[in-house]
Each structure stands twice: as C-alpha cells, then as structure tokens.
Amino acid sequence: MNHPDYIAAESIQQALHLKQVHGEDAHVVAGGTDLILRMRDEILAPELLIDLRKISLDRISKHEGGMQLGAYVQIAQLLAHPVIKETYPALAEACRQFAGPPIRNRGTLGGNIINASPAADLLPPLMAYDASLVLESISGQREMPLDQFLQGPGQTRLAPNELLTRIMLPQILANSATSFIKLGHRRSMAIAIVNVCTRISLAKDGSVEQARVVLGSVAPTVIRSQESEARLKGQLLSEDLIEDCARLAADDATPISDVRASSEYRKRMVRVLVRRALTANQSELSGGIAGA
C-alpha cells in the first residue's frame, strides 16, 4: 500500500481545484469502503486522497418534482428516508439488501456509482428511475444519464478533473410500479448473482407508456434490456407479454462464469427474475399486492 497525502476539502471549490491540478493521481474518499480495499490490494495507488465529508454533499432534497441526492449520501441515510421509500421504493429496497449495517453506514451513493461494479446493488434501481448524474469540474458542470455514464467494470465517463456531486432522480410518471429483485447466496453481506429492477409506467389507456428493464451482474456494466423495453412499449401487460420480455431480457444478458455462478445459470435467472419483477409490477398496477 502506498502512502498518499490526505486532504479533507473544506469546499467544493477546493476539491475541484485539487482534481484540476492532480487529475487521476488524486482519488476521492467518500465512504472509503471499497477504496481502502483497492489500495490495500494495490489496485489503486493514488498520490492524493480528497475527503469530501466536510462538504455538504450529503443532502436529500426535492427538486422539480423529483429528488436531488448528494453524492456523499450514505446508504443508511437513503434507507431511512421516508420520501425515498414512498417515491422510489425499489431504491429503498436495494438499500435494505445492501451488505450489512456497518457498510450501509459508510458506503455512499456516489461511491456505488463511481465504482461501476456490474453487481452494484443501487445501479439497477437508479437506472430504472432514469437517474442522471451531475459532474462538476472547475470549468463548469454537466449532466449525464446514468446509463451513458457506465463504460465497463470500474470504468466510467468521469473526466480526470471531474467530481460526481449530485444524482438527479426525475419525477416518476403517475401510475408507475417498480420492482427490485436481488438474487444472492445469502440475505446479507452478499454480492448479487443477478440483480433485476423493472419499472412500468402506464398511460391513461392502460398501455405501457414507459418501461425500464435493468439487469445487474450479467454484463460488463449494469444494462437496460433494450429488446424487452421496446417489446413492452405501447402494449397492455399480459402473462404472455411478460414471458416474452423475460426471454428477450435473458437474450440481452452476456454474463460471465465466476465463483458465484455460471453464465448459463445467470442467463436463466434473468428470465426468472424479470418475469417475477414484471409480474409484481402488473399486480401492483392492477391494484393487487406486489410480491416477488
């Protein structure tokens, strides 16, 4: 492990300035739960660590009908937030199933995004809710949809001089249902074998106005199943349609085999979980009780 300098930035400007000067040699410390392991394993050897805890990036607030979340918001904070639970329930559910209490108290929303793990628990719901990211540098800020931000395992479109500062959750259409299902080897402290998050928003006539079918741990990044989303659009939900979409989603998955599961099993589980998630959406939208 190397011996970087450490600065707890006093302001966002200071943090941005440091990023501007040091670029990739400077690494941001949010919760630090992944960073510390990567440094110990010498996957990362930054020269400078910029701690963001003194900057007020830990706010959760309403914004233009949606929500604005600071990048430093901790998982436990999200989990405890009543509006998140009410308005973005799949995100709350992903937080509930995230690791265990001590990690939830340290791990941050921004950290989970920047790590860009294909198995990250929070990314499927964020993507299903059309989250976008505010990336700031000393020369200004830009906003980017989450699904464009992720490039590969651990790879994002964050520029060396940029910081992720906020996550924007847009207002979700009326008459929407979301469902998050995590398949892991245990109920806590588990890395997902497969994660699925679906959202269905219905138009007034009952047809699908917007559909999101997001898959985790089955591709180099968390992905949206374009095929199944296209298949759903404008249709009336039915058992056959759902089965069809589940099959299409499995076709979109390109999983690897590792110690947790084989690629065949993962592909098969995509089909099962997408079917269950969409069925839960259907049930919720038709006034029934959502259940996985």
Partner: peptide, 20 residues
Amino acid sequence: TVMLDGRVVNSCMVMVAQAD
C-alpha cells in the same frame, strides 16, 4: 465493529483521517 459518531462501522474500512 465500533461506533463512529453514533453509528456502527467496520473500523477496518475507515481510514483514521476520516475519523479526525
């Protein structure tokens, strides 16, 4: 596990500077 500012954390995953 220890409590840091009133919340449980894994002390193996906290850099001491974060606890300043």
